Amino acid sequence: MSLSPDSQASATFPLPKTTIIINNLKKDDFVDTNPHTSFSSHTQLTVVDQIKLTVLNLVPAGKQDNYFLSHIEYWSNLPFLNRIIIILRDEESAAELHQFLTSHSLQPSLVASFPYIKVSLQENLLSRSKSFDSLIKTPAHVNLTTQLTNFKKYHNGEYPEPEPQPFNVFEDLSKMGIDVSEYNNEEQLNELKLPNVKRTKSLTKTLFRPKPSLSLSIPDQGQERPAGRGFPESPTITLDETF
């Protein structure tokens, strides 16, 4: 049987061990939190997310921040196979991550916190696959880095809250199908169209104002209600447009 050139090269030169497989996970590790473990301080997260956040926060001795974040090429949670697959850029970073996850001398370690989990360092059998090459060399890899970065910042409390956008009464209400011209005169409309301008007077509008009754007649017991008197009138409803 003849071997293809790629197969011959694989048999002669072993593929780099850049793939970490975290296996034997439980189904609950993907969906439920585990507050009883000391592996991560973020015990409100699922076990799988605790693993991800801990890896992204890890800074090996002599390395810069976001070391593993910048070295991860592929991360996939596979609950139907009870495993996580992580592919790194080089053998050095893969070996360092494998040591962190498995060494009992490093506390807390994954295997110490979850003895049922198996971690292995393997050759990247996908490295010669054209489909894998296209996966990591397209915007999909950029999206992965962005997703991991956002995940790390969010759960570390570093995710920037978006600045509240000012509410433009004229434009925003018009987009909602509300015609403010029905409740404002021309002068008031012009004032609404000018953003961030200090208003000289309140723009409170009366939307419904029936003529109130200034007296209240309470009939004695047994006395019939006078003819022509209906239910009490509704109160005045106003809308304050000052924000």
Rank of each mutant, 00 (worst) to 15 (best):
Q50S: 03
T54N: 12
Q147K: 05
I86T: 08
T206K: 10
P160D: 03
N82F: 11
T236V: 12
I20A: 04
T149E: 09
K193W: 02
Y159I: 09
N156M: 09
T54R: 11
I136M: 00
I85M: 05
Q221A: 12
N34Q: 11
K130C: 08
Y116A: 07
S103G: 04
D179P: 06
N82R: 13
T33V: 05
S174R: 13
L125I: 04
I218W: 06
Y116R: 14
A227L: 14
F30P: 02
S70K: 15
I51S: 05
N196T: 08
L106A: 09
D90F: 07
V31Q: 11
Q8V: 10
D6P: 00
S181M: 04
S213W: 09
Q147T: 12
S134K: 13
P212T: 09
Q122P: 00
S2F: 12
S109I: 06
T204H: 04
T43E: 05
D28C: 11
L135D: 03
E224S: 14
P232H: 10
N82Y: 11
I178H: 07
L58G: 01
F170I: 00
T46E: 10
R209W: 00
N185S: 10
K137L: 08
E161P: 00
Q147Y: 02
A227R: 15
A11W: 04
Q165E: 14
F30N: 00
R83Y: 00
L207H: 08
P108L: 02
L3C: 08
Y183H: 08
S217R: 13
K63Q: 10
D90N: 14
T146G: 01
T18A: 02
I21P: 01
H141R: 13
N34Y: 14
E233C: 01
L144Q: 02
L106G: 04
E186Q: 15
P212K: 13
N34D: 14
H141G: 02
I136G: 00
L207W: 12
T200W: 05
R209P: 00
V180H: 04
N150W: 09
L88R: 07
V59L: 06
Q188G: 06
F243L: 15
L126V: 05
N124W: 06
M176G: 08
Q221R: 07
Q223E: 13
Y74K: 05
